[in-house]
């Protein structure tokens, strides 16, 4: 196993690179291969999406990049992962993973608190961000008082608050209803335009992958590997609705759907 996590290289616009990554989980009943020979690169300021069927190891891939698998004894890894600044990563999960006993603002400031920023500074950053994600006035509410969509906005604000260079998103809109999902797709596009963060987002919704990504990586499953890559040439600034009406959208949708058909025939694609 060789994992390279080095500090910033001057003038290198590569933010993340994954080379020949294979990951297996060891369990008493045997070995499960989650990823096999995955390779791709992310450049600074890019928003790249990964689309693939459930069980194709998307979450494993993100966790490996985030360094969350490094200390696990039941995980076997080979290949190389390079992250320009491994100490500066944000993560948004499918379930918001907010701390239920903390108010909205206390959740948003979590990363700054861990980094020991002074209280006033934390508060100021959080209030600005809450304004940006449209949650002004909700700072003292508790997570259970918010809707699922609002909670996910808080999770987005939390991931940006400590200004990480690179943000991982694991199906962040997967549990939302269609309208809320479109609103938050616009939100993510807007945040990306404004902050120019490098974002790697996993989804199983083909439309979402095309609308958000400047590139779409298509994965297939068991074990997961990158099957193909598409550059999305939709005009900018994009919007969730506008992009859907573009012919390019339909062309890509077709191509990606064809890529995923094998898995679909095997009954592993849960698009609905």
């Amino acid at each position: 196993m060789e994992i390279r996590r080095q500090e910033a290289v001057v003038m290198n616009t590569e933010c993340v690179s994954v080379e020949g990554l294979s990951v297996s989980y060891l369990s008493p009943t045997g070995r499960v291969d989650a990823l096999r020979n995955v390779s791709f690169k992310l450049y600074d300021g890019e928003l790249v999406t990964i689309v693939g069927p459930s069980g194709c190891g998307k979450t494993t891939l993100l966790n490996a990049i985030a360094g969350l698998l490094n200390f696990r004894k039941d995980v076997l890894m080979s290949g190389k992962i390079f992250v320009k600044n491994p100490k500066s990563i944000g993560y948004v999960f499918q379930r918001d993973a907010l701390l239920p006993w903390r108010t909205v603002i206390e959740n948003v400031t979590l990363g700054l608190e861990v980094r020991k920023f002074p209280e006033e500074k934390r508060k100021k950053v959080a209030l600005d961000l809450l304004k940006m994600v449209g949650l002004e006035g909700y700072e003292n509410k508790y997570p259970h008082e918010l809707s699922a969509g609002m909670r996910q906005r808080v999770a987005l604000a939390r991931a940006i608050a400590y200004d990480p260079e690179f943000i991982l998103m694991d199906e962040p809109l997967g549990l939302l209803d269609a309208q809320t999902r479109m609103a938050l797709q616009d939100e993510i596009l807007r945040i990306h335009m404004k902050t120019r963060k490098t974002i790697l987002m996993v989804t199983h919704d083909i439309a979402e992958a095309i609308i958000l990504g400047s590139r779409v990586l298509v994965m297939n499953s068991r074990p997961g590997s990158v099957k193909s890559e598409y550059v999305v040439k939709l005009p900018k600034p994009r919007s969730a609705l506008g992009s859907r009406l573009d012919p390019e959208f339909n062309r890509l949708y077709r191509l990606i759907l064809d890529d995923l058909k094998e898995d679909m025939r095997m009954g592993q694609l849960d698009l609905l």
């Binding site: 985030a66 944000g90 993560y91 999960f93 379930r95 993973a97 979590l110 861990v114 980094r115 400590y162």
Partner: peptide
């Protein structure tokens, strides 16, 4: 405890 909460703490280098 939600494992994702622990993961987010680790990603933040807590």
């Amino acid at each position: 405890i939600d494992p994702d909460i622990l993961n987010i703490m680790r990603v933040m280098n807590a």
